[in-house]
Design a protein around this nucleic acid. Structure first.
Lengths: 193, 193
DNA sequence: GGCACTAGAATGAACGTTCTATCTAATGGA
DNA sequence: TCCATTAGATAGAACGTTCATTCTAGTGCC
């Protein structure tokens, strides 16, 4: 997840993610990050200018990773219906493989601790743009009902997020059949009658 | 929103909500709550045992309010289709009227700072149960496709949440027409072909 | 006088950050 | 090849601030 960073940065970011999910930002102290990552505070401040920067870097890195992960589903050749399914499957697969990253983004996308510019870049630079394009294409072809494609993408993303949330909170399972059904539900709601 | 509390408690809870949305839990100090609510720390500790309790009480109170608000839409007499629309309209209306409460719940439903029991009670005691019942009824009548009604409710809630999120982040509007369309999309995805 | 409540100073722990010292490895002149 | 020099990296103690909470003193009502 943090391939573009050096060893120390990677250790710090990975540790910070674990702690923040386990204990909240409040309780994620530099001393604890130092202890668990086995990097001294001196070194941490050599690579990061502040705690705020670590958290924002974490946010940026996870969003970038998610973006890449989902795009691998969208970039394949296929019909709109196929790419639709592949894209959302990747969204779910990603949050299943990296639940901490998923939870972190979910929790902090509304947080004032994350800089507005970081959030903006996350929104524009992730998988939203290609997914929006897919939906716009489906509407041009009169396959989807006429509406703001970006809104529909957000709604469908919300559906997937809440399915995963429900699973992570222990309120339901996350089976292949459930995922298939969820994608089918979204598709059916989107198409022109 | 905090009618069941006394004056001081109400002031503290209202102020805490404002600050936490503006500044993060981290930066929401007791001193700041005291200053902005015009209640001394001594008095705050007379009514609340700790900061943690304030936040958890806030969570509980908001969820209870939301639950009542949405149920007013669900309890009316009408067809399944009508009650479906009324329910989701109330969900959206509530988050439009009280965006801070909406944001707070969104941000902290995953947070370890909120006690598991509080989250559990929020899930079971809110509007989820009646909405689940409505969906189960629709499935019994073969109106909705066969699937776990709770999962479908969560998905639809996610759609609404992300529509509102998108609006609050400034990525889209929240018009009556948009809301109508969103509910229509959810309905169409749910019904049997 | 007793009680519920309030104010705000006091307390001690914990915090983010900085500082100093030390270590490591690379460089280059003789 | 040798040592002197340098720069980057690391460790952890130290610093000053801020925090949640407690304490003490006071108020007004019965």
């Amino acid at each position: 997840m943090f391939e573009s960073y050096n060893k120390v940065q990677k250790a710090v970011l990975e540790t910070t993610l674990q702690i923040i999910i386990r204990k909240e930002l409040q309780a994620t102290s530099m001393a604890l990050i130092a202890k668990e990552s086995k990097v001294s505070t001196g070194s941490i401040y050599h690579y990061f200018s502040s705690k705020e920067e670590i958290i924002n870097e974490l946010y940026t890195a996870i969003v970038a990773y998610n973006g890449q992960f989902v795009q691998e589903g969208l970039n394949r050749e296929g019909t709109i219906r196929e790419r639709f399914a592949w894209g959302w499957e990747r969204v779910i697969e990603n949050s299943r493989q990296y639940p901490e990253g998923f939870q972190f983004i979910e929790q902090y996308s509304f947080s004032p601790y994350i800089y507005e510019e970081v959030k903006a870049k996350a929104y524009n630079g992730g998988w939203c743009a290609p997914m929006n394009r897919l939906y716009a294409e489906a509407m041009e072809q009169k396959l989807f009902r006429e509406m703001d494609p970006k809104l529909l993408v957000q709604m469908h993303y919300g559906s997937m997020v809440y399915m995963v949330k429900s699973y992570l909170h222990g309120h339901s399972d996350l089976t292949d059949e459930g995922i298939r059904q969820a994608i089918e539900v979204c598709w059916q709601g989107a198409i022109k009658e």
